[in-house]
Write a protein that binds this DNA or RNA. Structure first.
Length: 878
RNA sequence: GCCGAUGUGGCGAAAUGGCAGACGCAACGGACUUAAAAUCCGUUUCUCGUAAUUGGGAGUCCCGGUUCGAGUCCGGGCAUCGGCACCA
């Protein structure tokens, strides 16, 4: 293979500087109280979403966000901040376990190898992480605290009075297990046979597992749940105080799916109620429905229960028993996917019983239908076909009566059929004439007064299914005794999983940990919980551990947490980063990662954080004050990168050919950080050419091919033009880093380099600040050239990492004269050069004196002249 | 179906309501070279025109509006991408 000659010797100095940073621990950030800690500096916590160390190594998508944060980290350091910029490994997960099933190699070994590979790749890109803070979620020293936090959640409840998590001791009731934030429930769960585990709703995409794409079926199982729904309101409300993309906030709001409405009780009509086989259990038996439109109660002409609703068995009359059984059998044979297929026609069966509409006293039939889901609301609805699309479709199919009870504005009663918006109540007794919001209020008050219902709030969000039937995850710090669960004492942590030879899932839903009977046996009477936690557990709090990763006494030291997670107004914020000024809460100052975690990690972590906050373990109610999503990088063909398409770009190859600096700069030069954009090797080459030109500004090559300091750089006074060329990028690069517009920052530096290329002499006073600007983007070449200049001149001391970020001098940016565009009716007709100090009248006079303009204006009437100082003049003629 | 984002040269993209296309890629021409690579210089939105230039016209997905002036603001479409999807 004939190696291309390198345009500059990055292959020599890049590893050299990486080794130097490592040896000198240049980027280590001391904690408050540690030697070398400077309390006078503001803090800045800039965080990446830590990766799962897969066997295939880094792809070019990872370093996109990582480069962005590295630029910010290096920049904020040069601006005089204490910068926390850590990296770690989210290493529990399926791939290592599945590899173990195939080969017998323990997941810990696989994980160790993959971490080593990832780490060396990240180091080769020159990221300025504080590696002393490296963490790994599979390390017992780490997951000891994951288990500890679980115990805190387990030993807490949500007090509806205070709307906060509180220790279970403050709960006065008789059955604490019914209110714990971590509880066991027998619920229909997403079971994936192929993976041998249950999955959270968030992990199921179109009826398939997010990992692997295997079929997922609903199946009732006994599982650990976390009561995230209790925090629904706060998870929505406190989004307001965060500087996050609106689209992500919206995604979370929609996922939580808060809807205000009412629960309404429909009593069962007498006589036909109970089939003889089941004796009445409750004389006041009623069906409770949830609706967001209690104002349409008078229009409810039937009730629908979910087929799985527990009252169905009690209420079905003998003559409908057969039809109901048949319908339920049909439903259960259908896959989740078929059931939710929207184009499907409505189906359902009358169960023979009637309910009583509490408002109209009418008896209305009770049906079951699969368009009513057991998992939302109360699993029962009132059918209001006049004002609900689905109900209308159902009523038309089964010839149920349709009443119009809301009139749309400007439409007749007839025309209002199917109207689902806000209007005016009609045919609704006491509600007639009221607007929809008024009617809602009134009917809820009436229902509450009569004990027929109450106003309530429901969420689409389900409690978080928290257990998995896997080996490679955190064991629960829980034991079972006589059918009851109990927490292990903190002194038992960490609970380490047993050594196994066979990692295979049992296939029955019994977790692999159960195979080790010795491990399972905790005492004569007690057995260990054998489920493990989902992969998300470790990432729910890793950003806290980074603040104090070596602490074995506490999950994070109080002082370290309150320092690094502090928020605006504490005096610890850097003066820069204006965006953060909009944040109401503290937390990580800048968090960069992909959109794919919008409703998974980012919601779970906020939930855990709030529990820890309520219990007084952390100082802020939210973990991440500012979030930015980087866009996906596509292959050269504009398609998503994938092995099967053969369009995957490997960072190692790019770095070998063009160097780490070129790789970093290209990733940032491609386009706006948040945008999806295709890779281009030609583009990398272009950026590499730019860096080579930078190199040749300072260095020159002799006949033998050796690089030596060039004589072009001289300690001379820059002239006015050179000062402008130097100070324009100081201003632009600074503001562009603040707004994360790295592509235009690089453009501006290219302009500087183009201007100095071929200049016989480059002032040292221009080169020095330029190298500092370049340093966050291309730290190796900037460090090397800085050191080269140090060899020859004595105008600066130490490495570039110890310098101060330059400040633009506006005086050098102002021109004496500016070119002004002259428009006639908005079209450019001429340009004139005027003094910067020229007044509007002077400019007008100069413009009107222009022979060209005079010629064009001949015979025309001037209606108006608009003068924009320093920019243009627009002459409006009739 | 609902919600959101995006739409600018051959390509990646820039443009506080004020010269559309900065910067880069590709392409073309030139210098250097025995030659090539590398490097450097120049041209490059489309179109009409001129012996020549500081020449004319059109142009930011489409249709309308606001404005002296719109890629940018407003209204209505279309297209692409992403999320949710019988959520009562």
């Amino acid at each position: 293979m004939n190696e291309r000659r390198k345009p500059y010797p990055f292959d020599q100095f890049e590893p050299k500087w990486q080794a130097m940073w490592e040896e000198e621990q240049t980027f280590h950030a001391p904690n408050p109280g540690d030697p070398g800690f400077d309390p006078g500096k503001p803090k800045f916590y800039v965080l990446d979403m830590f990766p799962y160390p897969s066997g295939t190594g880094l792809h070019v998508g990872h370093p996109e966000g990582y480069t962005a944060t590295d630029i910010v980290a290096r920049y904020t350091r040069l601006c005089g901040c204490n910068v926390l910029h850590p990296m770690g490994w989210d290493a529990f997960g399926l791939p290592a376990e599945q590899y173990a099933i195939r080969t017998g190699q323990h997941p810990a070994i696989t994980t160790r190898d993959n971490v080593a590979k990832f780490k060396s790749q990240l180091k080769a890109i020159g990221f300025s992480y504080d590696w002393q803070r490296e963490i790994n979620t599979t390390d017992p020293r780490y997951y000891k605290w994951t288990q500890w936090i679980f115990l805190k959640i387990y030993n807490s409840w949500f007090n509806p009075e205070t709307k906060r998590a509180e220790p279970i001791a403050t709960y006065g009731g008789t059955d604490p297990d019914s209110v714990r934030l971590a509880y066991v429930a027998d619920v229909p769960v997403n079971w994936c046979q192929e993976l041998g585990t249950v999955l959270a709703n968030e992990e199921v995409v179109e009826g398939k597992s997010e990992v692997g794409g295997f079929p997922v079926v609903k199946r009732p199982m006994r599982q650990w749940m976390l009561r995230i729904t209790a925090f629904g309101d706060r998870l929505i409300e406190e989004l307001e105080g965060l500087v996050w993309p609106e689209s992500i906030k919206l995604l979370q709001r929609n996922w939580i799916g808060r809807s205000e409405g009412a629960e309404i009780h429909f009593k069962i009509a007498g006589g036909t109620v109970f089939p003889p086989v089941v004796p009445p259990q409750d004389a006041d038996a009623a069906i409770t429905v949830f609706t967001t439109r209690p104002d349409t109660l008078y229009g409810a002409t039937y009730l629908v229960l979910s087929p799985e609703h527990p009252l169905v068995d009690q209420l079905t009359t003998a003559d409908q028993e057969g039809a109901v059984q048949q319908y339920r059998a049909d439903i259960s044979s259908k896959s989740e996917f078929e059931r939710t297929d929207l184009s499907r026609e409505k189906t359902g069966v009358f169960i023979g019983a009637y309910g009583v509409n509490p408002a109209s006293d009418r008896e209305i039939p009770i049906w079951i239908a699969d368009y009513v889901l057991m998992g939302y609301g109360t699993g029962a609805i009132m059918g209001v076909p006049g004002h609900d699309e689905r109900d209308l479709e159902f009523a038309r199919k089964f010839e149920l009566p349709v009443f119009i009870v809301v009139e749309a504005k400007g439409q007749t009663e007839e025309e209002s059929i199917g109207f689902t918006g806000d209007g005016v109540a009609v045919n609704s007794g006491m509600l007639d004439g009221l607007t929809t919001p008024e009617a809602k209020k009134k009917i809820i008050a009436w229902l509450e007064a009569n004990g027929d219902g109450c106003g309530t709030v429901r969420y689409k969000l389900r409690d978080w299914l928290f257990s998995r039937q896997r080996y490679w995850g955190e064991p629960f710090p829980i034991i079972w005794e006589e059918g009851r669960h109990a927490a292990l004492p903190e002194s038992d942590l960490p609970v380490v999983p047993p050594a196994l030879d066979d990692f295979k899932p049992t296939g029955t839903g019994e977790p692999p940990l159960a195979k080790s009977t010795e491990w399972v046996r905790y005492s004569d009477k007690a057995r260990r919980e054998t489920n493990t936690m989902p992969q998300w557990a470790g990432s729910c709090w890793y950003y806290l551990r980074f603040c104090d990763p070596q602490n074995d006494e506490r999950f994070v030291g109080r002082e370290a947490e309150s320092y690094w997670m502090a928020g605006p107004g504490t005096g610890s914020q850097p003066v820069s980063y204006q965006q953060n000024a909009d944040a109401t809460f503290g937390g990580v100052d800048l968090y960069v990662g992909g959109t794919e975690h919008a409703v998974l990690h980012l919601l779970y972590a906020r939930f855990w954080h709030k529990v820890l906050f309520d219990l007084g373990y952390v100082s802020q109610p939210e973990p991440f004050q500012r979030l930015v999503n980087q866009g996906i990088i596509l292959g050269e063909d504009g398609q998503k990168m994938s092995k099967s398409r053969g369009n995957v770009v490997n960072p190692d190859d790019v770095i070998a050919q063009y160097g780490a600096d070129a790789f970093r700069c290209y990733e940032m030069f491609m386009g706006p950080l948040e945008q999806m954009k295709p890779w281009s090797m030609r583009g990398v080459e272009g950026v590499a050419r730019f860096l080579a030109r930078v190199w040749r500004l300072v260095m020159e090559e002799n006949q033998a091919g050796e690089w030596n300091l060039s004589n072009a750089v001289q300690p001379i006074e820059p002239d006015k033009a050179q000062l402008k060329i130097t100070h324009a990028p100081i201003k632009k690069v600074t503001s562009d880093i603040e707004t994360l517009s790295f592509n235009t920052a690089i453009s501006q530096m290219m302009i500087l380099v183009n201007a100095f290329t071929n200049a016989p002499v480059v002032p040292l006073a221009a080169m020095r600040p330029f190298l500092i600007l370049l340093n966050p983007f291309a730290p190796h070449i900037a460090s090397e050239l800085w050191a080269m200049l140090n060899q020859k001149f004595d105008d600066a001391e130490g490495d570039i990492t110890g310098q101060t970020w330059p400040v633009a001098n506006e005086a050098w940016l102002v021109e004496d004269e500016v070119e002004i565009v002259v428009q006639i009716n908005g079209k450019v007709r001429d340009r004139v050069t005027v003094s910067i100090a020229a007044t509007e009248d002077e400019i007008k006079a100069i413009v009107l004196a222009s022979p060209k303009i005079q010629a064009l204006l001949a015979g025309q009437t001037i209606k108006k002249i608009v003068v924009v100082p320093k920019k243009l003049v627009n002459i409006v003629v009739s």
